[in-house]
Amino acid sequence: MFRRRARDREFREAQLAGHALLQMHANQPAPDFARPATASAPAAPITEEVPDFLPPDLRVPSRDEVEGMMMRWEQPLVLDGEVRECPQCGAYRDWIVFSMRDDTIWLRCRAGHNTAEPRLDAAWYNRNSGPVDAFHPTLEEGLRHCGH
C-alpha cells in the first residue's frame, strides 16, 4: 500500500515538472527571425551565379528526356481474365513491357516480337514497375540489362 503511494507521488512530481517546463516554454517570446534591413545601406544585387543543386553527372533525366521506360514481366500477363499471348509465336510469359513517352504500352516477347497493348496504360505501368535502376543510351543495351 505504501509502495503505491510512493509511485503515485513520483509520477505526480514528474507530471508537475513536465507541466512547469511546458509553461516556461509557452511564456517565452518567439525568436525574431525576420529582422528588418537597415535603410541606410541598400542591398547590392547578387552578381555571382548560384550553382545548381546537383552536379551534372548526378542528375537523372526527366520523363520528357527519355524515349520510354522498360521493365521485365516474367509471369503470365492476365488482362480482362485471359492470358495475353504473343500473336506471332504464342509466348505467354517473360515479357519486356515498354511505357513510351506518348503513354502507349508495348510488349516484347523473348523471340523479339513487339505488339502494342491498348488495354494497358501508363498508370498501370507506374503501379506495377519498381524504381528506375538504370538509364541506357540504346534499346539494345536496355534489353541486355533486362536479360533479353
Rank of each mutant, 00 (worst) to 15 (best):
A30H: 09
E140L: 07
Q15E: 14
W106H: 09
H113L: 03
L79Q: 06
M24V: 06
T47W: 07
P51Q: 13
E117W: 01
D121G: 14
G147W: 01
V78N: 02
V97A: 02
H136R: 04
G112H: 05
V83Q: 13
P45Y: 09
A41K: 14
T115H: 01
R84T: 13
I46R: 15
R35W: 02
E10P: 00
A111F: 12
R35F: 10
P56M: 10
H148G: 00
W73N: 04
P56W: 11
L77W: 03
E141R: 09
R108T: 03
N128V: 06
M1N: 07
R5I: 14
I105M: 10
L107P: 01
V66S: 08
Q23E: 15
M70F: 04
F135S: 02
V83N: 05
A6L: 15
M70N: 00
L54G: 02
Y125G: 09
D64L: 12
R93N: 12
R110L: 05
C109A: 04
R12A: 15
L139Q: 08
H136F: 07
W73V: 07
D121A: 11
R108V: 01
N128I: 00
F11W: 06
V97Q: 04
S129L: 04
A91H: 09
E48F: 15
G68Q: 05
F135C: 02
A134Y: 02
N114F: 15
D133M: 12
L79D: 00
V60I: 12
I105V: 15
I46L: 15
M69D: 07
A6N: 13
Q88H: 12
H148D: 02
P76K: 12
D102T: 00
D94V: 00
Y125E: 06
L22G: 08
M69L: 15
P76M: 07
A39Y: 05
P76D: 11
A17G: 00
Q28H: 04
R110F: 06
E85Q: 11
P137H: 01
D121E: 08
N114Q: 09
I96A: 06
R110H: 08
S129C: 11
R84L: 09
L16P: 00
Y125R: 09
W73Y: 12
R3F: 14
E140F: 04
Q15G: 04
G81H: 10
A30W: 03
F2A: 15
A39F: 05
A43G: 06
L79W: 00
A20V: 03
W95H: 04
F33G: 06
R93K: 14
P56V: 08
R59E: 10
P61D: 01
C109N: 01
L120E: 11
D94H: 12
A39K: 08
D57I: 07
A20D: 10
E67H: 06
A123T: 15
V50S: 08
L54F: 15
S40A: 15
C146R: 10
H113Q: 04
R3Q: 15
L139R: 05
E49Y: 05
F33T: 06
H145L: 00
R110M: 13
F33N: 08
A111N: 14
V97W: 02
